[in-house]
């Protein structure tokens, strides 16, 4: 391995030099900016889904495994919007008011589907267990069960189609904006990274500045005390799920525009990655979810560029383990409850 190492400048000059070692430095360097931007884009989606895990965990100390399916339902919300408007899968992109109207309906339906699913999940799968003071393990089983049930129900409903449901191109998000090195940064890259940053900031404001946010932080710190002090704990938990669902809905909307397709198991792998991102950044921490998501997207693409796609997940999880060895609570620690109240 070391024998084959060539310095940076040699690899660049030697293009199209073909590397025969297990590490492909030529490709890593040639695709560096391309992998960076596309890694950040996917990472932004990880981050938004990670928020659902982080919020619920911060407040309830519960890993809501069904969050990935909440997200998946959101992508079908966007699809439903296109069906309602009768947008064909092979039509010209829209412009002006028609574009804004379509996007607005997609966003609203994605949020309704995801938010609604998250609220139903809390009411049907978790609240009854809380009422009975069930042990933590039971919540976990309920979460996994709900996750499988939702994915399989959507799969069965769509006759278990292997292929995806294609979306019409309502907005030409493939337009090249500017170049970084020789990579064309397109509207979709800016949209998804910008969208994640905006939603993340909005959420931070909501949690830190509003009355409901204060309630959430109170329950996160000490649910019993919060209850005694007059906080409606069930209500706050419901709001927490709803907010996590709304974030998943936003992620689903961006995903729909970014990939222009979805399927019943779209949430599974993304959910695992988003959960990983949440843990990487420090589960329960909003900034941590953002940084964890972006970082995971980057590591995955850089790793794939250097070692080949078959090592993508190996590298991502190796990094996760290394980070947790040094910082067991993730990069930013768990702070939703302990944040400056």
């Amino acid at each position: 391995m070391v024998r084959h190492f060539r310095p940076f400048y040699v690899a660049v000059r030697a293009r199209p030099f073909k590397h025969r070692s297990c590490m492909n430095f030529t490709n890593f360097i040639n695709t560096f900016w391309a992998n960076t931007i596309s890694g950040l884009s996917l990472g932004a989606i990880y981050a938004l889904i990670a928020l659902g895990y982080t919020l619920v965990y911060g407040v309830l100390r519960l890993i809501n495994f069904a969050n990935s399916e909440v997200f998946m339902l959101g992508t079908f919300g966007s699809l439903a919007a296109l069906w309602i408007l009768g947008v064909p899968s092979a039509g010209a992109p829209k412009a002006g008011i028609a574009l804004l109207g379509t996007l607005a309906l997609m966003l609203v339906l994605s949020i309704l589907f995801s938010g609604g699913a998250a609220i139903l999940l809390e009411l049907l799968a978790y609240r009854p267990l809380r009422r009975r003071n069930s042990p933590r393990l039971v919540f976990l089983i309920s979460a996994i069960g709900a996750s499988l049930a939702i994915a399989e129900a959507v799969g069965a409903f769509g006759a278990r189609k292997r292929e995806e449901y294609p979306f019409g191109r309502v907005w030409n998000t493939r337009k090249n904006l500017f170049k970084i090195s020789d990579f064309d940064v397109q509207v979709r890259h800016v949209m998804v990274i910008g969208g994640a940053l905006i939603m993340m900031s909005g959420l931070a404001l909501f949690v830190n500045k509003t009355r409901l946010g204060r309630g959430m932080r109170a329950v996160a710190q000490d649910a019993e005390t919060a209850r005694i002090l007059g906080v409606n704990v069930d209500h706050v938990i419901l709001i927490t799920f709803a907010v996590g669902g709304v974030m998943a809905g936003g992620a689903a909307f961006l995903y729909a525009l970014f990939f222009e397709a979805t399927r019943y198991n779209a949430g599974f792998l993304l959910g695992v990655k988003a959960f990983t991102a949440a843990v990487l950044g420090g589960i329960g921490n909003i900034t941590g979810a953002l940084v964890g998501g972006l970082l995971l997207g980057l590591i995955e693409n850089w790793g794939a560029g250097l070692f080949g796609g078959q090592w993508k997940d190996v590298i991502a999880f190796a990094v996760l383990v290394l980070v947790l060895m040094v910082r067991p609570t993730g990069l930013f620690g768990e702070t939703l409850g302990r944040s400056r109240a």
Partner: peptide, 12 residues
Amino acid sequence: SDFSAAVNKMKA
């Protein structure tokens, strides 16, 4: 969902 690493490699 995302094959960008492979796509970028092919492009390069």
